[in-house]
Design a protein around this nucleic acid. Sequence first.
DNA 1: CCGTGTTTTTGAATCGTTTCATGAACGGAT
DNA 2: ATCCGTTCATGAAACGATTCAAAAACACGG
Lengths: 335, 335
Amino acid sequence: MTTTSMKDVARAAGVSVGTVSNVLNRPEAVAEETRARVLAAIADLGYVRNDSARQLRAGRSRTVAIVVLDVANPFFTDVVRGAEPLVESAGGVVTVCDSGEDVRRERRHLELLEEQRVLGLLITPVDDSSASWIERLSGHDIPVVLVDRGAGRHPHCSVAVDDVHGGRLAAQHLVERGHRKIAFIGGPAAIPQVADRLAGCREVCEESGVELEVFATPGLNFQAGREAVEEMLGREDRPTAVFCANDLVALGALQGLTMQGVKVPQECAIVGYDDIDFAAAAAVPLSSVRQPRAQLGRTAAQLLFDEIAEGRDHTHRNVVFQPELIARASTALEL
Amino acid sequence: MTTTSMKDVARAAGVSVGTVSNVLNRPEAVAEETRARVLAAIADLGYVRNDSARQLRAGRSRTVAIVVLDVANPFFTDVVRGAEPLVESAGGVVTVCDSGEDVRRERRHLELLEEQRVLGLLITPVDDSSASWIERLSGHDIPVVLVDRGAGRHPHCSVAVDDVHGGRLAAQHLVERGHRKIAFIGGPAAIPQVADRLAGCREVCEESGVELEVFATPGLNFQAGREAVEEMLGREDRPTAVFCANDLVALGALQGLTMQGVKVPQECAIVGYDDIDFAAAAAVPLSSVRQPRAQLGRTAAQLLFDEIAEGRDHTHRNVVFQPELIARASTALEL
DNA sequence: CCGTGTTTTTGAATCGTTTCATGAACGGAT
DNA sequence: ATCCGTTCATGAAACGATTCAAAAACACGG
């Protein structure tokens, strides 16, 4: 089966290719009768536009790429959902790439996206080592918006949540509940979100003379939380509360504790981060630091289109949202 | 900033464009010294291939699209993960599209994918109304593999799990535990998976004279489960067990029951479907019907590439996997 | 120095659109 | 009839890569 092209349609309708193109792109510029004839031919032949050719001509694709650390993490799916409507209403398409917290995968994606001449890029970089790659893209006129990564100097727009503040909220909450020894579970420390949340937590602990023990994990997933907690339970004089770098870790921790017969929150309180849907549905509903996820995505997309529209004389903007603590059963008890 | 093309590289290296192309695609056919010169020019100018142009020439893209009902559902992310390695090792790229169980969104995606001349398509259709659209694609030489939708006649390869059998497993398990009145929660009934699971469940109920009550939901999500259970609790003579069409619904049901003070499994048992990670981590670890998710994705990708390789004389294959029941605390009690 | 065979390089054709300067067709006013 | 202004349609020139027949460059034996 040979694909039918505009030329075929033109021949069938007895017009030139230019006219077929006009029917598709500026119908009002074509006479009623001609338009009908062309549309009939299109339907008849089952003609489908060739997007590669369009893009080649246009020089850009209509795709906005979102590179996330983990598609399975509900946090990112919500960010994506927040961005989609705006992109689509602007005639664009969203494509989601999963770096899996792996710099090499991320780099592979970036190379590909550049070859595809994407319209723009929303990205949560794995770590700082990606910076030069990302700047390469924006150097090639592909606008980049950093998501959930606002700290530090960088020549891009960004949306972020104040993670240091989030860390403080979690720690304050635990300190108010009377905890004097807290564990932080999360990693790798190279991930800025992890570092910031820990930093905020540490600040509060130091301010209020509370002991802090850090359990570094190789990733931010369920498994990591479960394992960290098992390690923790092996120790003497263990913490009475854990603050997890995200909710997946917290759910893992919760399960780890439950399986070892440790009662939450009676014997160990838990605070998570992200407030994903599953947090509220967990074994013991999880207290968690909530980020305005959809808004993060929406704003990121907005910044991207602003940059595209403003062109040369665009000034980068860094939008920072404040998180809020949602208290649930997992921290319900005063010590 | 003007994008640099092969022509620029050719000029800078003092060779023809044909040679530059060869350096990129068949390096061994170019003299050592020339190759070095060209590569230097590429690095120097920061040249990046234009994928649109390549595809236009090639007539096909290297993208394998996976259209899923809900990206936030871990079931699908696992299927995607299963497919990815195979696709990538074949030099392809995976793009994930979320139909959100909405036929219109699905159609929009299909149109776009066809314009993009994707290499192939793995899809879990929203319902039968998509059939004609999907056939349009395969009519245009885009191989299609149906995922988790093997029943019925269709001119495609497919991978599926025997959902009727899965429904039977769940019901049998509950009947063995002594339940005499069971609720099924899920919908819309137009989704084949829902219909099949219910069918299997109904078979067993009828065979063993157990009463079955069906609560139809508008979707397969957390919210739906919670609401269905609330409705159920309003009734007299309520069921002693619920079988949910998937784990998200089951988690919702679990929360709904817990919030109303109904003890699981003592006062109401629950069986879910999919055995997502969160099932084991739930308030009460959920019994669930497990599907070989990653294998589903892997096999689907394999069938796709087989079809591409075999070309004209390809015979469609329908692979059906058997699910297994994972019993956990949510059905731990005999009545 | 020629002929022959092998390795490299060339340059033009091609993929399917969009765009745009040009021209045709038509109606109405003079 | 002529001229002007609209409204439509045309067709060729991009866009940037790949491919391939043909030319060029080179090696080597006689």
